[in-house]
Write a protein that binds this DNA or RNA. Sequence first.
RNA 1: UGUCGGGUCGUCUAAUGGCAGGACAACGGCCUUUGGAGCCGUGAGUAGAGGUUCGAAUCCUCUCCCGACAGCCA
Length: 569
Amino acid sequence: MSLNEKADFIREIVAEDLRTNKYQGRVHTRFPPEPNGYLHIGHAKSINLNYGIARENPGGVCNLRFDDTNPEKEEQEYVDSIIADVQWISNEKPSTVYYASDYFEQMYQYAVDLIRKGKAYVCDLNADEIRESRGTLTEPGKDSPYRNRSVEENLALFSRMRKGEFPDGAKTLRAKIDMASPNINLRDPIMYRIVHEDHHRQGSAWCIYPTYDWAHGLEDSIERITHSICTLEFENHRPLYDWFLDALGVYHPQQIEFARLNLSYTVLSKRRLLQLVQEGHVTGWDDPRMPTIAGYRRRGYTPEAIRTFCEKIGVSKKDSIIDVALLEWSIREDLNKHAQRAMAVLRPLKVVITNYPEGKTEDLPALNNPEDETAGTRLIPFSRELYIEADDFRESPPPKYHRLSPGKEVRLRAAYIIKCEEVVKDASGNVVELHCTYDPETKSGGTAAGRKVKGTIHWVSAPHAVEGEVWLYDRLFLKEDPNEVTEGDSFLSNLNPDSLEIVSHCKLEPMLGTAKPGSRFQFERVGYFCADPARAESGAPIFNRTVTLKDTWAKIEQKGAAPNAGSGR
RNA sequence: UGUCGGGUCGUCUAAUGGCAGGACAACGGCCUUUGGAGCCGUGAGUAGAGGUUCGAAUCCUCUCCCGACAGCCA
C-alpha cells in the first residue's frame, strides 16, 4: 500500500489491533488454498491482501498453508502449481509451506478433548437423515437420537472410527451445539467424516478427515495467526469458528471477511474452471484464455500488473463485479513502460520499393522503447522488398484514413516515407502487391526526416523476415455475466467460439526469431505479445497476444459504419 | 418469509457529522515517426421516505433492493 492511499477496512482493523496491542504487536496472516485446482485471479486478490498486510507491518508474517482436509479432491499437482503461483504473485519464496494435514493428530486430540467436555458426540445418522433432521432456513432442526451418548461411549466409538471399523458415511463426529439455532451452521455441525481414501500427503494414515469448520480455526490457532482473512461466504461460519476455539479454550485469532473478486466476462469458480479443462474447452489450466495465474503468466501478464490491479480494485464487503477493462488497463500500463518494441506483420502484403537498389540492405536503428531511454536502440534490416499489414492499405480509403492508398504517402516506422504508385492484382482482382517509391531524404534522422505525413505504419523486410505464428485471444465468454443463461443452458452456452484465432505465416523482424519463451514485446501498432514455450508444427515461434493496443481508428471506423447505432442516451 | 451481510457516477472506490473526490470506462480536444503513449477537458452518483442537527452519504426510524447459508465441499 502506498503512503498516500487510504487503508481498506481490514488494514484499519489491523492498525487498531496494533494500537491496542491486542496481539502483542504481532501481525500474522495466512493464505490457505485447498489444493483442488489451480489458483486464479481471485486468489491473487487474497494473496495480495494477506502478504501485503504482513509486509506492511514490522515483523509481519504470512503463512502459505494448504487446507488439505479432503483427500477426494486434492492432488500433489495442485500443490506444486499453487506454490509456484504464490511465489510468482507475491514475489516471495515461502520459507516454510504449512499443511493442515500435518495437524491431523493434534486435531484428533482436540476432538477427544471436546468429547470429554461433553461438547461432541458420535452420530450414526446417515447423510440423508442428517439433512432431514437439520430443519430448514425457517424451521428448527431435531436432535439426533445419538446426541446424548455417554462420554465413554463417544470416546470408544470415535476411536473405532479412526481405526477404520466403520464404512464410509456410517458415522460422524458432531459438535453438540443447538439444533434450533437460527444459524444453520450451528445445528450440530459435523467435525469428522469417514472416508477410506488415501491422502496425497498422509497416505493411508487416516480414514477420518476433519471438516472445514472444525479444522480451519484450529489451523489458524496452531499457527498463531492474528487475522484470519476469508471471503464473505464464511461470514455465517464465524460464530462456529469462534465456538470451537472458545469451547477448546485455545488461542483465538479473529476471522475477517471480505468480498471475493468477480470479473466481467470471466468465470472464477474452481468447479467451472475444472469443467472447462476436463471437457477440453481450453487446452489446460494454463491456457492463456483461463483466468488462472498460470494462464495469465503464459499469456504475458506480469505479476506487477496483477498486483496493480489488486490494489486498484480495493477491498470491501460489497459484492461487486469488476470490469475486466481495468485488468487490461493494468497490463497495458505496465507493458507500455517495460516491453521491448518490435515490428511484426500479421497479415502481410508485399511492397516493392521500385526506386530502391536491388540487392541493397540497410540496417536502420529503431528505438527499443520510446517510453524508456535506457532501453536503447536496435538495428532493423531494410531492403527493396517489404511486407506491410494488409489492413494498412485501402484501394478506396474511407474518410480520415491515414495509411497507404493509391497515390498517397506514409512513413515506414524508423525508415523512409514511401508513396504508393501502383496496385498489382491477381486474376480475381485481389490486391497482391504494391509498387511504391521511397524518398531517400526522409530516412529517420536524415535531412528531411522532419517531413510530415499523416500516417506511420510498421513493416518487415521480406528477405530478412522470420516466419511466426501469432495466437490472438479474445474473451472466453460472450456475456458480461457468463452465468446468466436461459433455462436449461449452462454457462458453456456463453462460451465465445472465437476466443482463439491462430494467424500463421506472420512476418516478424529477425530479432523475434530468437525470443526466449516468456519474453514480452509490443508489436508496434498491434498489441502486446509473449513468446510461448511451445513451437508451431513448422518450427515457427508462437506469440500469444496478451492484450491489444488501444485502437482509436477501429472506434472511428465503427462509428462511421453504424452512425445511428447505440443511440438512446 | 429464519440468520448474517451489503446498497455512493456505467464499473470499482474515497469522504468516519463540515466543499461528494479519484480510478477505469465513455465522450471531446491537443500532441504524436506507434491512430500507441502522453496532456487537457466534458458528462455521470449518495436506493426511498421521515427524523435529529447550524450542517447528514455518514446518526435514528421505517420501507425497498441485492447477496450468502439448509455438503459427511472449502
